[in-house]
């Protein structure tokens, strides 16, 4: 009986796994909030992206390593992240960049 459940569970897990597959997103904008491992970024189109940071996230400025402490409100960033949509992303790389002019 337990083997049957294990089999059904394995099949269900295998079929549902792709539902959790993530896409890559590019976020460009200004940090509006930074709290522990989560930053919020106002993008050029006015929408807000929520981006989580973990130990694997690479943070750079001018191609050199930078500290997570530099992720403060007002800092402009270019983020490559994985997730399902802009409201729930995990950052792979965060580049600290000079201020970007607002979209015209």
């Amino acid at each position: 009986m337990s083997e049957l459940f294990a089999f059904i569970f394995a099949i269900a897990l295998g079929l549902t796994a792709p539902a959790a597959a993530h896409e890559e997103f590019r976020v460009v904008g200004e940090i509006t909030q930074s709290k522990s491992a989560l930053i919020e970024v106002k993008m050029r189109d006015g929408k807000t992206a929520a981006v989580h940071i973990d130990g694997q996230t690479k943070i750079t400025r001018d191609k050199a390593g930078a500290d997570a402490e530099e992720l403060k409100a007002g800092q402009f960033v270019v983020i490559d992240a994985y997730g399902d949509d802009f409201t729930d992303l995990l950052a792979l790389e965060i580049r600290l960049v000079p201020p970007i002019a607002p979209a015209k």
Binding site: F5, I8, A12, L15, T16, P18, A19
Partner: peptide
């Protein structure tokens, strides 16, 4: 509890995951 969870997962699989993903 395991049976109920499995049944719920099966229902979600058949009604939502299969149409969306496959």
């Amino acid at each position: 509890a395991t049976l109920v969870a499995s049944a719920a997962a099966a229902v979600i699989l058949v009604t939502a995951v299969l149409p969306v993903e496959y």
